[in-house]
């Protein structure tokens, strides 16, 4: 399987320690988050548009300080290549790659779950036959990745990488193990809420996105500067899966539903318009 042949990483351990890592306390970080969110609420009350995406300039996430553009994104109309997207199919992804619990000889340790949902575009149309990739920590909060130095056990039966091609209605389903929260070096005693990383393609390459799915009721939400970089509560809620008993299966796995909405396709409406003339 592809996960066995991932290229070797030659990073030194020095990179594990983020140069921007600070000795700030959780209280410092939480205060910074609260201030930014309060300013945002005032802005909305004064009539500003509600934000739907994370800020790229979000100082409580220290690594973002030198890694965000300071100039506004430049608006452009898409050209031909930007109205299309690479194609993926069964040649690229084996059907078994959507089950992260069967990649080794034994059963991984942890809470077996199914995460299922649909990929839609901003018009509510299903994104069919497209690539969806996931990666995650194991039930102890440890990634297989070399740079993960968290002293929690690696599970020899769990790599934590999955892929699928969406079905005709945009549907996907991954069988996996519920990941645990894990510590990181943003500030003192910093912990990420449990999450699964998702990578998505649409029908236009401008819809490309990478995000993280979270689990309902995580007590770490309020403390996490990556999650809280999304200043709007309604937008934050869109990253949280819902427990769904209809996905849960008898004596096998609990189920979560999470639908993903990409931005709007420009190809469809521009083509429709051309057809009008």
């Amino acid at each position: 399987m592809s996960t066995q042949t991932a290229p070797d990483e030659s990073f030194e351990n020095a990179h594990v320690l983020d140069p921007a890592a600070s000795t700030a306390s959780q209280e410092d970080i939480s205060t910074e988050i609260r201030d930014i969110h309060e300013a945002y609420r005032q802005q909305v009350l004064a009539g500003a548009k509600e934000e739907t995406q994370p800020r790229v300039d979000f100082a409580p996430y220290r690594s973002s300080l030198l890694r965000h553009p300071t100039k506004n994104l430049h608006h452009t109309d898409p050209e031909t290549i930007e109205l299309h997207s690479p194609a993926f199919g069964q040649r690229d992804v084996h059907i078994l790659e959507s089950d992260l619990t069967i990649q080794h000889n034994g059963e991984p340790i942890g809470e077996r779950i199914v995460v299922a949902g649909r990929v839609l575009d901003g018009d509510g149309r299903p994104v069919a036959g497209q690539l969806i990739e996931v990666w995650q920590a194991n039930a102890a909060g440890r990634y297989v990745h070399k740079r993960d130095q968290h002293p929690a056990p690696i599970d020899p039966n769990f790599t934590g990488v999955g892929r699928a091609i969406t079905g005709p209605n945009g549907e996907y389903s991954f069988t996996t193990i519920k990941p645990a929260p894990y510590p990181w070096k943003n500030h003192h005693n910093a912990w990420r809420p449990a999450h699964i990383h998702f990578s998505l393609f649409g029908t236009d390459f401008t819809q490309r996105m990478i995000t993280q799915m979270y689990f309902p009721g995580d007590p770490l939400f309020a403390l996490d500067p990556i999650y809280q970089a999304i200043t709007d509560q309604k937008a934050r809620d869109r990253l949280v899966a819902t427990y769904d008993h209809s996905i849960t299966s008898h004596e096998w796995a609990t189920g979560y539903n999470w639908d993903i909405v990409l931005t709007g396709s420009n190809r469809t409406w521009m083509e429709d318009e051309e057809g009008d003339h």
Binding site: P54, H145, D148, H197, M209, T211, A235, R238, L239, L262
Partner: peptide, 14 residues
Amino acid sequence: LVPTPGQTIGPFYG
């Protein structure tokens, strides 16, 4: 529909 927010790719995608 309102698009789902993005998040960082993080350090462990390698």
